[in-house]
Write a protein that binds this DNA or RNA. Structure first.
Lengths: 160, 160
DNA sequence: CGACTCGGTTGCTTGATGCAACCTTATGTG
DNA sequence: CACATAAGGTTGCATCAAGCAACCGAGTCG
């Protein structure tokens, strides 16, 4: 989106958007939530330019939204994980997902479903399980391919 | 943020961000929710370039998030109002606001409070009244300047 | 008649994004 | 050994969007 700040804005929405409002940032967070933790996976899945992905990941790590951890040495290779701060973006993502589903519906239904790990119920726009009524957090839910997608790549776990 | 689309993405989050993920778009929606309905008000309050504001307003009207209504003729002057689709962005804004408050707190407290019109209780990150427990929508809540702001300009009503 | 208001549009410059090529360390193949 | 491939980037260049200031048109005010 932006690349920088919203000078003069005192609102926390503006402050949030300074960080996660940049183009691709929220989609990167979504993908990491869905289990895509590596540079190549993210680049291929998102179709984002590699330099831009690199810059976003760096920024998200700086902002303590993602954490970069090596999963092998020689050559060093890294994975990205969500911090608590990153996981806390889950309600915002769920709200945006629900808004998109409601107001730009796919003919065959939503392409992605969020379900409660505990009981399998669908999750509302507020991140509440529609089956058992529990107020959920990122770790309580999982993303599944919905009816609107032919063959999804969302099979990985949703826990950060 | 963007200015255009996320090709290849089948997710509703991406579809939502194609519309409201552009730089300034969500802040415009927030301002209109807070009662800033006119071009000049928005331009001054946001500090956005006039041509960009013009483009965003046009896009938001095209996408049926805002509605442009004349409030006088000769010369014709217009105000922008939220449609139902626009009002439905409220949970996402509340989630982002709560995230910003939690993870980038102001020293004196949050600059903006969302309160339940009915009972005056504060609103949680899920848009639920912390006082009476009711699940709220945009029209049920109002924005007030919080302790973190010297003299706010949020006095207008929050109903679209 | 000139200054001011509101809601924009136009032109120019700066900065972010997209794209392709390249780099580094390492493994696999003939 | 040479060569190809893989992961995780970096670099250079072209394009597109954002920021800024000036201008416009209709109308009101003094």
């Amino acid at each position: 989106m932006l690349g920088h700040d919203y000078p003069g804005q005192i609102c926390s929405i503006a402050k949030a958007l300074e960080v996660v409002g940049e183009r691709w940032s929220l989609l990167i967070v979504r993908d990491v939530m869905n289990g895509n933790r590596r540079f190549g996976q993210l680049q291929q899945g998102l179709g984002v330019a590699r330099n831009v992905l690199s810059a976003r990941l760096q920024r998200l790590v700086e902002e303590d939204i993602l954490e970069r951890r090596p999963y092998q040495s020689s050559p060093e290779r890294y994975e990205y994980f969500l911090t608590e701060k990153g996981l806390d973006l889950w309600p915002a993502l769920v709200a945006l997902l629900a808004w998109g589903d409601r107001h730009s519906p796919e003919p065959d239904g939503p392409p992605m479903l969020i379900v409660h790990k505990g009981c399998g119920g669908e999750v509302s726009d507020r991140g509440i399980c529609e089956s058992c009524g529990e107020l959920l957090h990122a770790r309580d839910a999982r993303a599944l391919p919905g009816p609107g997608v032919a063959t999804g790549e969302l099979s990985a776990s949703a826990s950060g």
